[in-house]
Design a protein around this nucleic acid. Structure first.
Lengths: 341, 341
DNA sequence: ATTGGCACTCGTGATGGTAGAGTGCCAAGG
DNA sequence: CCTTGGCACTCTACCATCACGAGTGCCAAT
């Protein structure tokens, strides 16, 4: 069952050629380009075995063969030798993502864009999760009669706000006092703890000001929940240029699914568990719209803690040798850019 | 030169049939469906005239005819009778956009989505501009050593923030004082005035705190400039289902152009001048990627003032009769939802 | 001015034929 | 037992051809 060295070599060569050319590979060409002194007939025998074992498939009787998702998987796990990031790409990455973050949102955006540009596929960045963030500052601002704007600031500089409607008008002094209380009691505490304690303390209270506090708590909860969903993605239109996707009727489903994000985010959160590049090939993701696609992702860490994941989505036939180091490098740089100087 | 009643009737009928069926309309069918007692030969004569005058064109010698952008323009201006919004659609609109705004961003998003869903085309909403907003509150928060987070709040509840790096550490007291000064001096003034005055006052100053203020001013400027760019758009993928766009090689360009937004935003700002629904048909927009598309847009007003514009982008062949009232109605509802209760 | 007739044009779809690529299998040879 | 050359077979892509249908433009008759 174990593949012998020659079969592996041929499989590697076949996958590489197919990635490069995009067409099925035949025995004659493979025999020529594999570098072994071997006749096409021999190659045919090997290929027939590889097909039986599920690594290859022929689109039709007399085309060459292309890798299945099993073939790609074996290629990626056992045969692939990643090439180091080209100086050119590296320069570009550093230039675009930089080492310093003027603004988190902008850096995330830049990373998404550069991933898409350099790979000619769709790039994505899961926004950093905030579960472990520290509450830095709270403000309550009387906007209009019976409208209060609550603003939360975390230690990482995230700002989130929410409009709260109250039943009775609240004076600026009341609000300032509430904010002071809030900051004194909860400032410097982790967001999760703040919410937990508030939830406990406000259980039965009915005071108007407590209603404001409770709404503020909901804002805090939303800050934690919201980023369950948030993900930047860019360059889906590149798929239109990729024949294996553009031709498929699935393209539309794929675009819709990616917009929805929900399941995708779930898949990516799984891949945040490790600390390495992860690759989902075709149906491996267990997510129907991605059947014809591969996802290459890498988690990124801020201040030593994994907070998000980024990567690219493209057709199964993608140049993994270059994509992997690129995704890896982008994750490193993004993490560094968002970390403490 | 003026078209006689019969020619107008035939043009109207032809455009309607082409919108409904999507294929070129021939003389036989037009003669039958137009309701006039007229032979195909007569219809051919009229059609030939209309073609000479630029209203129609044949894709090839022996297909029927389809409207040119000039034909659509005439149809829209002179022949079209808009149908009132269906009860069903109206109910849906009210339900989704509602009368009250829990959160501006969410309402804008809902409006974009509903436009796209109901029209099966791409929907867009230009975010409300802030030029006339009043500065309500400013905060400076020391985030880390030599990092200050500046937060601006306007009377409409917009919150914008920016990380400012300083050369020297600034104490919380200094920052509080600066914020107090800022709020006392500029609170309640229009954003534009604040920036203008700051720009004047800080011209030559070199104090560290003034540097913070200057950065804050830049944030204010960004608030005004940024929304020059901001626009929500959703449902571009619907274009894939529209044969006249999906087939075209221009689709990719269109998608990229729409992502870029820059020129599109410029076009839309033009259409904010009036207070009515505006329609750009094909090349009328003067924007190459939109050559095959029409844009139906309507400005929306908050508290009696036009602050933005929304609409849909789709192929020239779209059901204007229904699109126009839908876009109009959405604009009304969105304006109401964002206005003072 | 309108109409029927008619020749003409053009796209579409079906048909068939050919070339090229590639396969599977077999028998011969190391 | 593995490898190889040979060979018949299969399938696609491409092209040419053909008939059909839809539709036009023009003209002569009303």
């Amino acid at each position: 069952m174990a593949m012998d060295a020659r079969a592996r070599h041929l499989l590697k060569s076949l996958v590489e050629q197919h990635i490069a050319k995009g067409v099925p590979v035949g025995s004659r060409q493979l025999a020529r380009d594999a570098g072994l002194n071997i006749s096409p007939a021999t190659v045919r025998n090997v290929m027939a075995d590889l097909e039986d074992e599920g690594y290859l498939i022929s689109p039709h009787t007399s085309a060459g063969r292309i890798p299945t998702h099993v073939g790609y998987r074996f290629f990626v796990d056992a045969l692939l030798r990643v090439v180091p990031l080209s100086a050119e790409s590296n320069r570009l990455l550093v230039h675009r993502i930089g080492f310093r973050a003027p603004d988190t949102e902008q850096v995330l955006h830049a990373a998404t864009g550069i991933l898409s540009e350099l790979t000619h596929m769709a790039g994505f960045v899961r926004v950093p999760r905030r579960a472990t963030r520290i509450l830095r500052h709270v403000d309550f601002i009387a906007l209009r009669e019976r409208e209060v704007l609550a603003i939360f600031v975390t230690d990482k500089g995230d700002v989130e706000n929410r409009l709260i409607r109250t039943e009775h008008p609240l004076g600026a002094a009341d609000l300032a006092q509430a904010a002071n209380f809030f900051n004194a009691t909860y400032g410097g505490r982790p967001l999760q703890e703040v919410i937990h304690n508030l939830q406990r303390d406000l259980q039965q209270s009915r005071h108007e000001m407590d209603r404001v506090l409770r709404s503020a708590m909901e804002l805090g909860e939303e800050m934690l929940e919201e980023d369950q969903q948030r993900m930047l993605i860019e360059g889906e239109f590149q798929w239109l240029d990729q024949p294996e996707l553009a031709g498929s009727e699935r393209l539309r489903e794929l675009l819709v699914a990616v917009r929805q994000k929900r399941d995708l985010v779930h898949l990516l959160d799984e891949s945040m568990r490790g600390s390495d590049v992860r690759i989902f090939i075709g149906e491996e993701s267990g997510y129907a719209p991605l059947t014809d696609c591969s996802v290459v992702s890498a988690p990124y860490s801020v201040d030593g803690e994994v907070v998000g994941v980024l990567g690219v989505i493209g057709p199964m036939r993608m140049p993994y040798q270059q994509i992997i180091p690129l995704v890896d490098g982008t994750a490193q740089l993004l993490g560094r850019a968002l970390s403490q100087p």
